[in-house]
Amino acid sequence: MAHPSFAVTVDLVVLTVRTDELCVLLVRRGVEPFAGQDALPGGFVRPDEDLGTAAARELAEETGLVVGHLEQLASYGAPDRDPRQRVVTVAHLALVPDQPVPTAGSDAAEARWVPVHEARGLAFDHDRVLADGVERARAKLEYTALGTAFCPAEFTVAQLRRVYEVVWGRALDPRNFHRKVTGTPDLLAATGRRRPGTAAAPRSSSAAGPPTSCTRRCCAPTPRAGRPAASSAPGTARRRRPARRAGPRRRRPAGPGRRGTRRSAGW
Results as ranks from 00 to 15, higher is better:
2 A>K: 11
3 H>M: 08
6 F>M: 09
10 V>G: 08
10 V>E: 13
14 V>E: 02
18 R>S: 05
19 T>N: 15
23 C>Q: 14
26 L>N: 07
27 V>C: 09
28 R>L: 03
33 P>H: 04
34 F>V: 05
34 F>Q: 06
36 G>M: 06
38 D>A: 14
38 D>N: 12
39 A>W: 08
43 G>I: 00
44 F>N: 04
44 F>I: 06
47 P>A: 13
49 E>W: 01
50 D>H: 06
51 L>A: 09
53 T>D: 15
53 T>E: 15
53 T>Q: 15
55 A>M: 09
59 L>C: 04
60 A>D: 12
62 E>Q: 14
64 G>S: 05
65 L>C: 03
69 H>Y: 10
75 S>L: 00
81 R>T: 07
82 D>H: 14
82 D>N: 15
83 P>F: 10
83 P>K: 04
83 P>C: 09
84 R>A: 10
84 R>Y: 08
84 R>I: 08
86 R>G: 09
86 R>Q: 12
92 H>V: 03
94 A>I: 09
95 L>P: 02
97 P>S: 14
97 P>D: 12
98 D>A: 15
105 G>H: 01
105 G>L: 01
105 G>K: 01
106 S>I: 00
108 A>K: 03
114 V>D: 10
116 V>A: 06
125 D>T: 15
131 A>E: 12
132 D>P: 03
133 G>N: 05
133 G>C: 06
134 V>A: 02
135 E>V: 07
140 K>A: 13
141 L>A: 01
150 F>V: 00
150 F>I: 00
152 P>V: 06
153 A>D: 10
154 E>H: 11
156 T>W: 10
158 A>W: 14
159 Q>T: 04
160 L>C: 00
165 E>I: 02
168 W>N: 01
169 G>K: 07
172 L>F: 14
172 L>I: 11
173 D>W: 05
175 R>F: 12
176 N>F: 08
179 R>C: 10
180 K>F: 02
184 T>W: 00
185 P>R: 05
187 L>S: 03
187 L>F: 15
188 L>F: 04
188 L>Y: 05
188 L>S: 05
191 T>R: 04
194 R>M: 07
195 R>Q: 14
204 S>C: 08
206 S>N: 15
208 A>R: 15
209 G>N: 07
210 P>K: 11
211 P>T: 07
212 T>E: 14
218 C>I: 08
218 C>V: 11
219 C>E: 12
220 A>W: 07
222 T>A: 15
223 P>G: 11
224 R>M: 11
225 A>C: 06
226 G>I: 09
228 P>D: 07
229 A>G: 07
229 A>T: 04
233 A>N: 03
236 T>W: 05
237 A>I: 15
246 A>P: 03
251 R>I: 05
252 R>G: 02
252 R>F: 04
254 A>G: 12
257 G>P: 07
258 R>K: 10
259 R>F: 08
264 S>Q: 08
264 S>E: 10
266 G>T: 10
266 G>Y: 09
